[in-house]
């Protein structure tokens, strides 16, 4: 019987660090195949670096059976078509059953290019994954988040992308004895359709880091104005929290897209998530589901988020925020 293979694309950032989602997916893949006889979790790394020891060590810890490395000067700077070709060539050779990419900017660009090259299907931004009788069952929110759909793929490899933070790495991973395989792909400079001319840093607000926050206050379209929305920053300052926004608030111009939470935004893991004037479409919920506690404030008791929260408070978000700030200042 052929081996059942799951390949995870290892994404590296500009500083050569490995994107955490690559570890999360390796751990998830390892968990998914644990009851499948004769299975293999592979990690595919494309790039240019001096030393892979640390990366291999980390992937071993999260359950990789094999690490495939395509190392070449030409991959030093990211170019979509070169990476597409390298990944596709290796996958054609390895013939995995399942392939995962992180649903990062790069992953969302590369995965459909690779899927099209291999003439196979791809399911984007999955929030649940399962393998049943060799079939990948990939579940994702759809229809503006009102519906979850479980999607299957008729062709091989069955491909999916997953956002960072949807799955967590295990606290006590079981280290595997990982094989390392250096491979080579024939690519040429003429195939470099795009090149990076410049990297422009953006103003990063370190005091408002959503990924590490314990308390997050988020506002939605129900905040009604930018002025109201900005009161959340005061509330956050007084209680040691940070501020996030729903896509509705960003689209309405109340908040910057850099603090957007949800499927098309950041995924968070706060201890307490407080949502003001957010209706709670599944696209938003996909970004907050791994928070320990969810509290929502909404004037509409039928807003979807009310049923999805630990505590739903029916009331006027604007007034309640004002009262919270007042109360905190009086203490």
């Amino acid at each position: 019987m052929d081996k059942f293979k799951v390949t995870v694309f290892c994404e590296t950032a500009w500083d050569d660090s490995v994107a955490p989602v690559s570890y999360e997916l390796t751990a998830k893949a390892s968990d998914l195949v644990k009851n499948i006889e004769n299975s293999e979790v592979q990690v595919l790394i494309v790039g240019k670096r001096m030393n892979y020891d640390d990366i291999i060590e980390s992937f071993s810890n999260y359950g990789a059976d094999k690490v495939i490395i395509v190392n070449d000067d030409i991959f030093e700077n990211y170019s979509a078509n070169l990476y597409r070709k390298a990944i596709s060539e290796i996958l054609k050779k390895e013939k995995p059953n399942v392939v995962f990419f992180g649903a990062t900017v790069k992953g969302r660009e590369l995965a459909p290019l690779v899927a099209t090259t291999l003439n196979t299907g791809l399911t984007a931004d999955c929030t649940e994954l399962d393998i049943v009788d060799g079939k990948l069952e990939a579940t994702r929110p759809t229809f503006g988040g009102k519906l979850n759909a479980t999607i299957l793929c008729k062709t091989l490899p069955q491909m999916a992308t997953v956002r960072a933070g949807v799955f967590r790495v295990p606290e006590n991973p079981v280290k595997k004895d990982t094989k390392v395989n250096f491979d080579w792909v024939n690519v040429h400079d003429e195939e470099k359709f795009t090149k990076i001319l410049e990297l422009i840093p953006e103003y990063a607000d370190d005091d408002n880091d959503l990924s590490k926050a314990e308390i997050i206050y988020a506002g939605g379209r129900g905040m009604k104005s930018k002025e109201n929305f900005n009161r959340l920053f005061e509330l956050a300052r007084l209680t040691g929290g940070v501020v996030g926004a729903s896509r509705g608030a960003v689209d309405a111009g109340f908040a910057d897209s850099s603090i957007q939470i949800g499927q098309t935004g950041k995924t968070i893991h706060a201890k307490v998530y407080v949502a003001f004037g957010i209706s709670g479409l599944a696209q938003h919920m996909a970004g907050i589901n791994s928070c320990d506690k969810i509290i929502s404030v909404n004037k509409d008791s039928n807003a979807p988020i009310m049923k999805l929260s630990d505590i739903g408070i029916v009331g006027d978000a604007e007034e309640i925020i004002k009262q919270m700030v007042r109360s905190l200042k009086n203490k």
Binding site: T123, N148, A149, C153, K154, D310
Partner: peptide
């Protein structure tokens, strides 16, 4: 290549 096996309402807490 892909098809929807089932669609369902997202569940809450």
């Amino acid at each position: 290549p892909t098809y929807v096996k089932k669609a369902f309402r997202p569940k809450g807490r």
